[in-house]
Design a protein around this nucleic acid. Structure first.
Length: 264
DNA sequence: ATGGTGGTTCTACCA
């Protein structure tokens, strides 16, 4: 089995003890990180190495930043999302681990919708769609994991009416997410769980965590070849209740080894 | 309707 997790940690340095403790307990093969909020030279590489994890890092000062941690070899690393050479924000990194192409992505928030941030978000989603279409041509397993900043459906939000005009839930944003699904990608979490109120994020403000005022905005999208290997996908909400928690919690995906297909 | 919290960085900006 290959266990892959994604977690927006809201500063990898501020969250280091939380992340190390979770890694030791959960022991994923791969951990996709978002919102590092640091540069590669300040990334705590040695602390992860001590637990047996190598790291591929795409960082920037103060904001954004994504990384791939893996217990195996991280090969063919590519940083930045194709489609806009002028985009200086560190939001996308992709590499191959154990024969699976994995990406850690931090899709733009897009608020306020009246600002330039919203069209940037929509354009970024279209670039992701175009890139996913390219990856699909390989006909290989791939996993796009991360903070999509998209509430796919009303059941993924504690107050859909209150969020209808927000960049995370606007119709254009949801259409962009559906366009990814319409390529043939699978929202791994929804294969095994159709319940409402399954959240990955709870705001720091207004007692969102104790009130369970959450959002499901962290997702794993799988290529058909990866979906054929899908064994499990679940949200681990425990880290959100720890001291000094991130406002997001990990989502954990398990894939069967590709060889298993031949043994069916 | 507002403000509520937290991270980076030093003055607001972002989420």
């Amino acid at each position: 089995m290959m266990k892959i997790a994604t977690w927006n940690v809201n500063s990898v340095n501020a969250r280091l003890q939380n992340v190390l403790a979770w890694l030791e307990a959960a022991r994923p093969d791969v951990l996709l990180l978002q919102e590092l909020k640091t540069t590669e030279d300040k990334f705590p590489r040695a602390a992860f190495s001590a637990l047996g994890y190598d790291a591929a890092v795409f960082g920037q000062k103060a904001w954004n930043g994504v990384a791939i941690l893996a217990r195996g070899t991280i090969a063919d690393v590519e940083t930045g999302l194709a489609g806009d050479p002028a985009d200086g924000q560190a939001r996308y990194i992709e590499a191959t681990v154990a024969g699976v192409r994995v990406a850690s992505l931090y899709l733009p928030n897009g608020n306020p919708v009246e600002s330039e941030k919203y069209p940037y978000k929509l354009a970024w989603m279209e670039r992701l769609r175009a890139h996913a279409a390219d990856l699909l041509k390989r006909e290989q397993p791939f996993v796009l994991g991360g903070d999509y900043n998209i509430i796919p459906e009303g059941r993924d939000c504690y107050d859909p009416q209150g969020w209808k005009d927000d960049a995370l839930f606007r119709l254009e944003s949801r259409r962009g997410f559906r366009a990814l699904l319409n390529l043939g990608l699978t929202d791994a979490f929804r294969v095994y769980n159709d319940k409402a109120a399954q959240y990955t994020f709870w705001d720091y403000q207004a007692g969102a965590w104790p009130r369970n005022h959450g959002l499901r905005i962290d997702h794993f999208l799988l290529s058909p070849q990866a979906a054929d290997l899908l064994d499990a996908c679940a949200i681990d909400s425990a880290p959100r209740g720890e001291d000094k928690a991130s406002d997001h919690t990990p989502v954990v995906l398990t894939l069967r080894p590709p060889m298993a297909l031949h043994n069916i």
